[in-house]
Amino acid sequence: MKEGILLCGHGTRKTAGVDEFKKLVEILKDRYKDNYEVDYGFLEFNHPLYEASVERLYSKGIRKIYALPVILFAGSHAKNDIPYELNTIQSYYPDLEIKMASPIGVNSFVLDLAKKRIEETELNLSPLDRKETCLVVVGRGTTDPDANSDVTKLMGMLWEGMGFGFATTAFSGTAYPSVEQSLAMVEKLGFKRTIVIPFFFFTGILLDRIYAALEEKNSLSSQEFIYTAPFGTDELMLKAFDSRLEQAINGEGNMNCQLCKYRRQIIGFEDEVGKEQIGHHLNVKGVLYEEDEKVGEKKNSIGSQFKKLLGI
């Protein structure tokens, strides 16, 4: 019997970001079509929700699903929200097994892809010794120091491996320093050029804010601030998904429990130990309605059109 793959997206208010996510879905559908039925869902904002996607797979006879988080680092979404949703959904089907893979995390594919994006950007710039260039790696930023430290680790490896004069991190939300704070600190170092690489899959509200901050900095500074493209659907990222799928199949999709604030007393987060695993996105699940993605409902019906008009 064919097995299933559920691509677990986060969701975005930006239509272009949803379109890019769906492009990844189509690529992975084709990549895995011989052995797997591939579907997708979103944690918040967009449809289909994970529940609807699992319903689709189940209706096709799928009884084992490998859930692949389309998330780079193991913050609260990967540790709490997605497992909570999947465990709840699995309880509805006594004969269904859902095995969740680890998020992409720190691996050689991400490192090589970051190097590729930086080198692609440098090709369009005037020649400059990397020792005169600063690198800023921008992560999403979470309340989980384990996930934030993964961004910092990859930054350090890029710094040493590519020979930049200096490198540091920034975060687009929640964690310190913000993009604006990091750029202000970097500017004081006096490097002729700063290359900023966002560790994001696709475009979205947060990526737009990062680029806007860089455009503003460029307009006010005598130094050069350059940004790269996000990771997208590059073959190196697809190989990272291959690796995570293989780990899930073999039961090796483990997270870093030794430095997880929910399992160990981490400095500054002692009150998080043993916290209940619950979802935090119930108030924004599917609020941006995509009627055509709802399971079992006719497309473009009068009811469908009425809901679209009301925005529900």
Rank of each mutant, 00 (worst) to 15 (best):
R31D: 11
K33T: 02
K33S: 10
N35V: 00
N35Q: 14
N35P: 06
Y36V: 00
V38W: 13
V38F: 06
V38P: 14
D39G: 04
D39Q: 04
G41A: 09
G41Y: 12
L43T: 01
E44L: 10
N46P: 02
P48S: 10
P48N: 11
L49H: 11
L49W: 09
Y50S: 01
E51I: 04
E51C: 06
S53L: 04
S53I: 01
V54H: 01
E55M: 08
E55I: 01
R56A: 14
R56M: 13
L57C: 01
L57A: 05
Y58T: 11
Y58Q: 12
K60Q: 14
K64S: 13
I65F: 01
I65N: 09
A67V: 14
A67C: 10
L68P: 02
L68S: 06
P69Q: 03
P69W: 05
P69T: 03
P69C: 00
V70L: 03
I71W: 05
I71G: 04
L72G: 07
F73K: 11
F73E: 04
F73D: 04
F73C: 05
A74P: 06
G75H: 05
S76V: 12
S76P: 05
H77E: 01
A78E: 02
A78R: 09
A78P: 00
N80H: 07
N80D: 00
N80C: 01
D81R: 11
D81M: 02
I82G: 07
P83T: 00
L86K: 10
L86R: 06
N87Y: 08
N87A: 00
Q90F: 10
Q90D: 09
Q90Y: 11
S91A: 04
P94G: 12
P94Q: 13
P94H: 12
D95P: 13
L96D: 03
I98C: 05
M100G: 04
A101V: 00
A101F: 02
A101Y: 02
S102Y: 11
S102P: 08
S102Q: 14
P103H: 15
P103Y: 13
P103K: 12
P103V: 04
I104A: 03
I104K: 11
G105A: 01
V106K: 15
V106N: 15
V106Y: 15
V106T: 08
N107Y: 04
N107L: 00
S108M: 15
V110G: 06
L111V: 02
L113A: 08
A114V: 13
K115I: 11
R117M: 06
E119P: 02
E120Q: 14
T121Y: 09
T121A: 09
T121V: 15
E122W: 08
E122I: 10
L123P: 02
L123T: 13
L123Y: 15
L123C: 12
L125H: 09
L125S: 08
S126I: 03
L128H: 07
L128F: 01
R130Y: 12
K131W: 05
K131R: 14
C134D: 14
C134R: 15
